[in-house]
Amino acid sequence: MTRIMSTEDLIPVIAKLCMDACYHLSDNVIGALKAAYEKEESPYGRDTLKLLLDNAELASKEEMPVCHDTGMAVVMMEIGEQVSWVGKPLEEAVNDGVRKGYTEGYLRKSVYLDPLNRVNSGDNTPCVLHTEIVTGDKVKITVLPKGGGSENMGTFTNLVPADGVEGVKEFVLKSVLAAGGKACPPIVVGVGIGGTMDKTTLIAKKALLRPIGNRNPNQYYKELEEELLEEINKFGIGPLGMGGRVTALDVHIEYYPCHITSLPVAVNLQCHSVRQATIEL
């Protein structure tokens, strides 16, 4: 059965997702920050986490952005294969939604139209849109406003197969260490292993969508996540790099099959301001 949907209907929906993501941290994130506060031993670190929790509460109450860097909007859509669109082209409608959300929601306009000639688009478009065709007739939309502080600390490398899991660990740890306090820890570390370069970085970003505390269902990767989390929290970087026990809230790994000669790894970092909003239509 074909389900007819209008792209125009997406505009207000996406606008609201942009605003909601920027104003309200989820219960999952608040819970993780509270747990970090309990665990933190450094007085400066604890003080910082307390301020972040107070800030999140204030932002939500006042409907103000939790963080002033409301990012470039990453929009991920899972579109059921039975859906047939009418109305303007999908990408145009999605950008209309982003424009509306960032303008009417008083969010920051942080997008340059050209990376070298650097002219602001004025309305935070275009977004980065990822679409995936899935079974069924539903549409799932996630908006992930991604600030520069943590995004700019992302890394990618092509290891050789002989580097193995030790090479992967070393690369992930090195990336987190280099980011230090600049990525606004406590962070969520998204790791993509395998695929081709494009796929590796995409699954590293998708790893950030998994709720904090949820592990990879594969036992091997689950244990790797736990080991990396423990190692990262030994660095002492702490909240906002002020020193402390909690540098990462979690490590999420996604993997994908890869070529016999390859072992690509990508690390995408998410700052403490974990802003995401999702809807299923």
């Binding site: 800030n55 204030l58 002033h68 606004c184 906002l240």
Partner: peptide, 13 residues
């Protein structure tokens, strides 16, 4: 001086 990255609603006050 260090300020708290991301504590933006509070600093605005």
């Amino acid at each position: 001086f260090l300020s708290i990255g991301g504590a933006s609603a509070m600093i605005a006050n």
